[in-house]
Design a protein around this nucleic acid. Structure first.
Length: 758
DNA sequence: CAATATCGGGTTTTT
DNA sequence: CCCGATATTG
């Protein structure tokens, strides 16, 4: 049988072979670090005969974990095929997994902690059926805390407070510590909000994202024996993206490696982009002090990008001081220069990118393209430009499936059935669908729970006992709600999961409510709910129980359902980490946007912005284009503001770049026409005039001359078939008034709405 | 109590 | 521009 490690380069091979003791791998972008780790794991199992279950690999995203898991499985499977005789005892292995084999544990930090806590959390006084609060639950709870303390949300918006609390938690700071070290009264107030928030979380038997890590660390601190038993179980530990670990994660790593020092930390200080979430680049810079016997290996050969892309990216990031420094190289000596395009308007920038994307896909329909930007708000213009050109794209970010209201409602019912202390779930669905339990009644329940230290559920039961105090119909509504949840709780134990969810949607009247609404939106929601039932059925088949399913639903993020097959992907720079594309368009290289104005004031913040830029640039395999706009409109305000080109653009030596002009890519006449309009606008601006040009007919990427007339029958994806009753405007601003039976008249822009002739 | 109309404020990045 | 929070009405 061939040697497994022959498939690695010498640097990667050294990583795989260094199996004992602490190892820090400084892996540049595109240097095959995942490859090195997966081979290392396979090597441990195959050559060193290490039991798979004693191997742990921790990543930050579910996607990275899935990917690594799959690659390890594939690697091991292909090796077995090569030597079938060595596997004659197949199926008889005692600790066999579902497919007949034990597997290494490859998981995110959060999922690992949930796993541990579901077994052990009782030692901290929580019950094992604790709820996991996501951002939405957290915000609601925080608002309630502000209310409790009689604070308006003027001083801190719930979001602000939450982000500061989260930061503190990730630093391992308690409310008491925050109060004691507070230097101003605002921070003192915040500390009291923090304290109240913590107490209410605990009363709800709930953990937020940060708690998942924090409580695990607390647990291990409380019982060293327990920590050691986990440490002994996980004899070989791998940490991916080590540069993004925060202090709490760091403590957890120390606890897990207490009985051995077999830690393989892989990271790249140049790709540390989560400082704002408490990630501390120090962890990677200090590794050798933390683990004295540490070996340090570097992966500097890049397999992804062309040399000129690497040179440009390196030129930018080399302006940072806080780094170990490295020299990325590739054998891909030839390649196009980095394109730089300066548009007059943000719309023009998006148009240009869409045009280039179309050209790239025209040359190679299978090319992958990433359109990357700093803030989610930038996505809209790119979406519109893509749609106008009929380019299929996939948007990462925004609302994920599990964040949709109807899905969260359904999950809240399941959560409440499962754990009646779950306050967030309780409040979410107590009157959804409307069942006659309004604000006043809910406030009464809350008051009762506060006064008597009851959970909301217990307070509800108390109200039922007292019965007649309130109006009769309220009492009946409460009783029927109570009975509903009890039925669901009972069914949750008895029924198969998919059945349970189907029954839940039915019994709660949720589906009926949506059906009654009889709107296209409601139909979409119904479809989503059916999709949820499918997901539940799939989970059931995979052997997941209800808790495991709810845990997973709580921990999935938008980036996770990113689909490799989509040719064009729109996403933020943060979401793009770990991905690669044949062509990358990095947009909005303007001061205030990249670097972002919120973090360009101090050096540390600015360096992180620079790393963000670096991450974006190094996603590109063949083609990298950086774009900026001379003006930009903020929050839909009337006028446009002038911008300044990003300092990062100036950090790239000219020899690596080529200036792109729109004329260089003209394929059809109207594109040229569009650009000439843009240049007129720019001229007017420089001479001090606001452009009065209406978006011209020729500028519209959709062929000019309206295809819509009064009386046309049209089909809309949401509203179905309708009749055009009025037309106004032309080109991009053409507006139709369409009457849809059942929905009345709607005004819409055919430029954006997907309308077909029916 | 629920459904509709109006107003004001808000965007950095996310497990 | 889009969202939620508030006021008003049925």
């Amino acid at each position: 049988m061939s040697d497994l490690l022959d498939e690695l380069n010498s640097e990667q091979r050294a990583v795989a072979e260094q199996t004992e003791g602490p190892l820090l791998v400084l892996a540049g972008a595109g240097s095959g670090k995942t490859r090195a780790i997966t081979y290392r794991i396979a090597h441990l199992i195959e050559t060193h005969r290490v039991a798979p279950w004693s191997i742990l690999a921790v990543t930050f995203t579910n996607k990275a974990a899935d990917q690594m898991r799959e690659r390890v499985a594939r690697l091991l499977a292909s090796r077995r095929e090569q030597s079938p005789e060595s596997m004659s005892g197949e199926g008889a292995t005692p600790a066999a997994g579902a497919d007949g084999r034990a597997k290494p544990l490859i998981s995110t930090f959060h999922a690992l902690c949930v796993r541990i806590l579901r077994r052990e959390i009782e030692a901290l006084g929580y019950s094992r059926d604790f709820a996991i609060y996501d951002e939405d639950d957290q915000t609601r709870l925080l608002k309630a805390c502000l209310n409790d303390l009689g604070l308006s949300d003027k001083l801190f918006t719930p979001r602000q407070a939450l982000s500061r609390i989260s930061y503190a938690k990730n630093q391992g700071i308690s409310p008491e510590e925050m109060y004691q070290t507070a230097r101003d009264s605002d921070t003192e107030t915040l500390a009291s909000i923090f304290g109240r928030y913590r107490d209410r979380l605990r009363a709800a038997n709930a953990l937020d994202f940060d708690d998942l890590l924090l409580k695990t660390v607390e647990l291990f601190e409380k019982s060293v024996e327990l920590a050691d038993s986990y440490s002994r179980r996980f004899r070989y530990i791998h940490i991916d993206e080590y540069q993004d670990t925060n202090r709490v994660q760091y403590r957890l790593i120390r606890q897990l490696t207490r009985t051995h020092h077999n830690i393989c930390a892989v990271g790249d200080e140049d790709q540390s982009i989560y400082r704002w979430r408490g990630a501390s680049i120090e962890n990677i810079l200090r590794f050798e002090e933390d683990f004295r016997e540490a070996k340090v290996l570097r992966l500097e050969r890049n397999y992804r990008s062309t040399q000129v892309i690497l040179d440009g990216a390196s030129a930018v990031v080399s302006n940072n001081r806080a780094r170990k420094g490295k020299n990325l190289w590739t054998e891909r000596r030839t390649g196009r220069s980095i394109g730089v395009y300066q548009a007059g308007t943000a719309e023009g920038e998006a148009e240009f990118v869409a045009g280039e994307v179309a050209a790239a896909l025209g040359a190679n329909p299978n090319a992958s393209v990433g359109v990357l930007y700093r803030t989610n708000a930038q996505s809209r213009l790119f979406e519109e430009a893509m749609r106008a050109r009929r380019i299929q794209y996939r948007l990462v970010g925004g609302f994920s499936f599990y964040a949709r209201a109807e899905i969260r409602d359904a999950l809240a019912y399941a959560r409440l059935a499962f754990n009646q202390r779950d306050t967030a779930a309780f409040l979410r669905i107590i009157n959804t669908p409307p069942r006659g339990i309004g604000e006043t009644t809910v406030a009464q329940i809350q008051a009762l729970s506060r006064e008597n230290r009851l959970t909301l559920w217990e307070a509800l039961e108390e109200m039922l006992v007292r019965g007649k105090e309130g109006p009769m119909r309220t009492a009946r509504a409460l009783a029927s709600f109570h009975a509903l949840i009890q039925t669901l709780a009972e069914e949750g134990k008895r029924l198969r999961m998919a059945e349970f969810f189907r029954s839940l949607l039915d019994r709660t009247g949720y589906l009926a409510m949506l059906k009654d609404q009889n709107t296209p939106e409601a139909e979409g929601r119904i479809e989503n709910l059916l999709e949820l039932v499918n997901a539940v059925a799939a989970a059931e088949e995979a052997g997941e129980n209800l808790t495991a399913f709810l845990d997973r639903a709580a921990l999935v993020s938008d980036t996770d359902d990113y689909d490799e097959r989509a040719r064009v992907t729109l996403m933020t720079l943060h979401s793009a980490k770990g991905l690669e594309f044949d062509s990358v368009f990095l947009a909005g290289l303007e001061e205030g946007l990249l670097p972002h104005k919120m973090s360009m004031d101090d050096d540390a913040g600015l360096e992180e912005e620079r790393r963000l830029c670096y991450v974006g640039m190094t996603r590109a395999k063949d083609r990298l284009v950086l774009t900026a706009s001379a003006t930009r409109r903020f929050w839909g305000e009337e006028g446009r503001r002038n911008t300044h080109r990003s300092r990062f653009l100036d950090e790239i030596p000219d020899k690596f770049t080529e200036r792109l002009s729109s004329s260089g890519r003209v394929e059809t006449n109207w594109q040229g026409a569009f650009n000439s309009r843009e240049s007129v606008e720019q001229f007017l601006r420089t001479t001090g005039f606001e452009s009065r040009l209406k978006p011209s007919r020729i500028s519209a990427p959709i062929p000019a001359g309206s295809k819509w007339r009064r009386g046309n029958r049209v089909r809309h994806p949401k509203y179905g078939i309708g009749t055009v009753i009025a037309c106004e405007g032309e080109g991009e601003t053409e507006k139709l008034t369409i009457s849809f039976p059942g929905y009345g008249a709607k005004k819409m822009l055919p430029h954006f709405a997907t309308l077909e002739k029916a």
